[in-house]
Amino acid sequence: MSDNGPFNSQDMSLQPPALTPDYRSSRLRAPHHKLLSLEQGAGELAGPAFGQDVIGPNDNNLIINYAAPGAAAIGEQIMVHGYLLDENARPVPEALLEFWQANAGGRYRHKKDSYLAPLDPNFGGCGRTITDEMGYFSFRTVRPGPYPWPNGGNDWRPAHIHFSCFGQGWAQRLITQMYFEGDPHIQLCPIVQTIPDPKAIERLTARLDMEHTVPMQFRAFRFDIVLRGRGCTLFENKLEGN
């Protein structure tokens, strides 16, 4: 394995195709031409980095980071935690993760969201953190509610948290979503179902983690994110016994 070589190509069998007609918004927003393949240059191998100094003390606590002093967001309190890794199972340290979500009633604090569920005056719906040297991250929040969305039918999003991930190179940039184990809407949602491989959907589904659930306080959910690795060939795999 090489630390400075190109990133492995995107595994398109695990990624949603651009055009997914059941998700109506993709119909006019999916490019029709094939993507042009590129040999990665210095700019794809490097990427922006963000130090701890951009992170405030409550940025990873959505229960209080928008609340009035002494107040808290309404809803079931949870912790979400896990590891940011690459395909070689190596940690991705010092990477910025940003997350955003609807409140416990399924309403976003956004000018364009007019769903009937009320806004929670003490919930903003965004947070961020930087992974540690092991790629570990954690944050506290309230469990988001499912919400309906206009897609031509009776479509409801499963409860979810959006994640924006920076890696160590521009080629690793990723935005994805985290779902919750056992949510029946996962099967029904045209956005989730843009992903062709059911195993890839499972990997976006956080598991209840009783080991880190704190009695009488909050439940923990475990969610790992895997970015593209670099310089991994089949031959090297065998050598290292992965």
Binding site: E87, H110, C126, V226
Partner: peptide, 25 residues
Amino acid sequence: MSHSQSASQTAGPYVHIGCTASVAG
């Protein structure tokens, strides 16, 4: 390789809440 790449999902219409909070209000 021992792990599979996480799948992408759309940033959605409310990406601004997470990435450009002041634009979201």
